[in-house]
């Protein structure tokens, strides 16, 4: 599933083209131009509204109903009942929230800084830098099926790599990585971090390439060592990228789905690995769906996400608005 945005919002372009154009009036937009622009914006906008926003709004509406997903006439308005049930009488809900928070903290504290660290290490004239980059980014390129399979054959309690090594070192020891509800979330987080690190690394590397090398060299000439250069000069200069990394991390953590789904056997939430996205799937996909209930869960996730994205979008675009 896709992820959030990597690029930095640029500072306002000093030669904003349109203002320039209107000032100097080289040629007014003709009817052909206007038609072209209307099509250019109209078609994608229509697609977006019809395929994305319309269903999203419909889901919000459905979250106030009870529906098995079959006949439209069976949709019954239940008001806030679904939300009430979810908050008070849905055993996996609070564990899922907790797991999402753990996911967020873990991702923000380990793979994200590590990815930034790697990007900084690789952003220099270094032999094999591309080899390193590829190796670390590779988990992102692999399909989810491969990722699921890889970790399955690592964590397998009988034939897996980890328990095999463990068993060779201390016979009789047996860790149920994916089965133990106290452990499996962490096992999955390792798999997730394995992918996330490369993603962050690439995004940050892109950001770092945008930092004028002169800036770094100036700092180096001033006698700052690598860490100081990074912390005092480069990191602050990359504020826009930092914001994006933060948003990506938050979004990926809130929406975390794929890796857990695959490592959970593709059957929905498992004890110890409940996540909001999986609870939604539990209720929406499958033989006996509870569309209203699932939609209400989705709206909860949506609200949390929007709170996270909202701050970002407002911060990002307000600058341009100046």
């Amino acid at each position: 599933m896709p992820s959030a945005s990597p690029t930095a919002p640029p500072a306002p372009a000093p030669q904003a083209p349109a203002t320039g154009a209107s000032r100097r009036r080289p040629r007014r937009l003709g009817p052909g131009d206007r038609l072209f622009l209307a099509v250019v914006i109209g078609v994608p906008l229509l697609a977006l509204l019809v395929f994305v926003w319309l269903p999203a709004l419909a889901s919000m509406g459905l979250s106030f109903t009870s529906w098995d997903g079959i006949y439209l006439s069976d949709i019954h308005w239940v008001g806030l009942d679904n939300y009430h049930q979810i908050l008070t009488n849905y055993p996996p809900f609070w564990p899922a929230v907790r797991h999402n928070v753990i996911w967020l903290l873990f991702t923000a504290l380990l793979p994200t800084p590590f990815g930034i660290f790697l990007a900084y290490q690789l952003d220099r004239k270094l032999r094999f830098t591309r080899v390193y980059q590829t190796a670390i980014f590779l988990p992102m390129v692999l399909s989810l099926a491969v990722v699921g399979l890889i970790w399955e054959i690592i964590y397998n309690p009988d034939t897996g790599l980890l328990d095999g090594i463990l068993n060779a070192a201390a016979p009789g020891h047996h860790v149920d990585w994916l089965g133990d509800p106290d452990l499996n979330l962490w096992a999955v987080l390792v798999a997730s971090a394995w992918r996330h690190t490369g993603y962050i690394m690439i995004l940050y590397l892109a950001g770092l390439k945008g930092v004028d090398p002169a800036l770094k060299e100036a700092a180096a000439l001033d006698g700052a060592n690598g860490r100081q250069t990074f912390l005092k000069v480069v990191f602050p200069a990359l504020k826009p990228v930092n914001v994006i990394i933060l948003v990506v991390t938050v979004m990926e953590s809130l929406r975390a789905f794929d890796v857990v789904y695959v490592l959970g056997g593709g059957v929905g939430s498992k004890p110890g690995m409940e996540l909001l996205s999986l609870l939604i799937t539990d209720n929406i996909i499958g033989e006996s769906s509870h569309i209203g209930y699932g939609s209400a869960l989705a709206v909860v996730l949506l609200l949390v996400s929007l709170a996270a994205i909202g701050t970002f979008l407002v911060q990002n675009f307000r600058k341009e608005d100046r």
Partner: peptide, 14 residues
């Protein structure tokens, strides 16, 4: 931008 950030599960039924 916000459209891409909606969870896919929200959209599927409608």
């Amino acid at each position: 931008t916000a459209g891409n950030l909606l969870p896919a599960q929200v959209l599927i039924t409608p």
